[in-house]
């Protein structure tokens, strides 16, 4: 049963159909209420396609695709998120209090995802815009084929980092296990660091003493020539 507490609507998930939960969330959002979602049981597809202005907090952990297709909602997940958290979001803000599974922020276009723990493989795969901030370590092959946007990892990176990166950027402090194909480390300019600090500052994470590695595409894949034996060896 739903319960209205001041300006907040409490919606329980349990074993109810996710479609039913979603319709209640949309109704609450349209009524200008903030939403507390309880008893989430790590269910999938919660909080997908939420509109701008919507404010939701999920108690506990959520399953796959939470916050996907977000167009401007502010979403807070108390604990862990499964695969594809914030996938294809175009705006808004998603906070994950714990661990985020594989492909967090996949194909995202805009907005910010903030993961307070570590995240799984292929963080920001094929992302095209926006920012992913990870306080812990980003997993294997993070930034894979990212076309834009920025991944900022404060606790290091797993293997094959920024593999086949296109125009995105992966910023890392801490150890990088190894770089992916065509990824190169560059020294960031003061202006670039200031841009990253401007993203971290509202999250309370700005620290001017950090030693950054800015990883971008070496661009050899941009001009790939199939008859070039060295290019094949690179892959």
């Amino acid at each position: 049963m739903n319960e209205i507490v001041t300006n907040e609507v409490v919606i329980e998930v349990g074993k109810r159909p996710v479609r039913e939960v979603h319709m209640e969330m949309l109704a609450a959002a349209n009524a200008g209420k903030s939403i507390l979602v309880t008893n989430t049981l790590s269910r999938h597809n919660l909080g997908v396609g939420l509109p701008a202005g919507c404010k939701v907090r999920f108690e506990g952990s959520v399953g796959y695709y939470c916050g996907g297709l977000n167009t401007g909602a502010r979403i807070e997940i108390e604990r862990n998120a499964g695969w594809g958290c914030g996938e294809a979001m175009s705006d808004g803000h998603v906070t994950v209090g714990g661990y985020a599974g594989m492909s967090v922020g996949a194909a995202m276009l805009g907005g910010t995802i903030h993961v307070k723990g570590d995240c799984g493989p292929r963080c920001g795969v094929a992302m095209k815009g926006g920012n992913i901030v990870v306080e812990g370590k980003i997993g294997y092959q993070s930034g894979f084929m990212a076309h834009g946007g920025r991944i900022i990892a404060l606790g290091g990176a797993g293997g094959s980092c920024a593999d086949a990166l296109w125009e995105g950027e992966v910023w890392v402090t801490g150890d990088v296990e190894d770089l992916g194909v065509d990824a190169v480390v560059t020294e960031p300019t003061a202006e670039q660091v200031a841009e990253v600090d401007a993203i971290l500052d509202p999250l309370g994470l700005k620290d001017t003493s950090r030693d950054w590695r800015r990883i971008i595409a070496g661009q050899r894949l941009w001009y790939f020539e199939s008859r070039d034996a060295k290019a094949w060896l690179m892959i």
Partner: peptide, 8 residues
């Protein structure tokens, strides 16, 4: 405590 064995 949930352990995610997500690595390669």
């Amino acid at each position: 405590a949930i352990l995610n064995y997500d690595g390669p």
